[in-house]
């Protein structure tokens, strides 16, 4: 029945062109949306996610931006990013350590408040939080590195003597003093930012950075020989001949050693 088939055919063609047009439009709009979402993924380095936050990629799939974590934070540490004002993805929670750091509540109310698991409920001990890690970014201005005893970042750390220690080293400048270098141990630092907040300088010399910026990573196959040996209680490789060490002493080609003699070779740039 050609007469009946004709309008049907037109209908179908119309349907197909309409659908194609919609699909085309959606492809364009979708690409734009994907571009904007990808753009929104960039988290500024100084914006720190709350304790227990999933890795950023997973976090943006999980956080519904409800702000319940913000409401339950007793120190008003957390804020929701505002559109075009804060760099973090709109509506997501973060904090700026230099404004208000995380006080590391024992009961972690922010994690408890999160309905989605964007803040991981598996975090039950706040000391296990890894919001980032503190790095003493500016040794040239840090008062302790200048040889003074400021110590403030060390004193305020909630995980004092574990996350941050004072390591002594020789003060080359004065020649007879020690430098008490504030030294962060990333395996213990929670990234709470209390040290950054408390640094007495106008611009903090110690800053919490995201782990991806603050840390390197050893290759998976690297082994620290001395640790392996300690664990094994014996040399790691069997049957290694232990040659006698050549210690400086009488008979060495080293003028610095008592009884040494002048070496026959000349080291470039060294005047002995």
């Amino acid at each position: 029945m050609p007469t009946a088939a004709k309008p049907r055919k037109v209908d179908r063609r119309r349907f197909l062109t309409d659908s194609a047009r919609m699909a085309g439009g959606c492809a364009v709009a979708g690409t734009l949306l994907a571009y904007v979402t990808n753009d929104a993924k960039a988290l500024p380095d100084q914006a720190i996610r709350p304790p227990g936050a999933l890795p950023e990629d997973d976090f943006l799939a999980a956080c519904i931006r409800c702000g319940l974590c913000v409401r339950d934070c007793p120190y008003d540490t957390l804020v929701l990013a505002e559109l075009g004002v804060d760099g973090a993805a709109t509506g997501t929670p973060y904090f700026t350590a230099r404004n208000i750091p995380c006080e590391m509540c024992d009961d972690i109310p922010c994690v408890a408040a999160c309905p989605t698991g964007a803040l991981d409920k598996d975090l039950t001990v706040i000391d296990d939080a890894r919001m980032g890690t503190a790095v003493l970014v500016d040794q040239e201005n840090c008062l302790n590195f200048l040889g003074l005893r400021c110590d403030v970042c060390y004193r305020v750390c909630p995980v004092i003597d574990e996350a941050i220690t004072l390591e002594t080293m020789h003060n080359e400048r004065s020649g007879h003093h020690a430098i008490f270098a504030p030294t962060v141990h990333a395996d213990k630092c929670t990234g709470c930012g209390v040290c950054e907040k408390s640094c007495v300088l106008p611009e903090s010399a110690i800053k919490v950075l995201p782990l991806r910026l603050a840390r390197g990573e050893a290759a998976e196959h690297y082994r620290l020989g001395w640790e392996e040996q300690d664990a094994k209680g014996a040399p790691v490789v069997e049957g290694i001949i232990d040659l006698p060490d050549r210690l400086p002493g009488p008979g060495t080609d080293n003028l610095a050693a008592p009884g040494g003699f002048e070496p026959t070779y000349k080291l470039p740039g060294v005047s002995q």
Binding site: A34, V36, K41, D57, I64, V79, E82, V85, G91
Partner: peptide, 26 residues
């Protein structure tokens, strides 16, 4: 993209969140 995509432009939640938490350029 592995993200909650519409939330980057959703005016509904943005306006509401803006009024309750802070507007920015909403």
């Amino acid at each position: 993209t592995g993200t909650i995509a519409w939330e980057v432009i959703n005016p509904v939640t943005m306006v509401h969140r803006g009024l309750v938490f802070g507007m920015g350029f909403v």
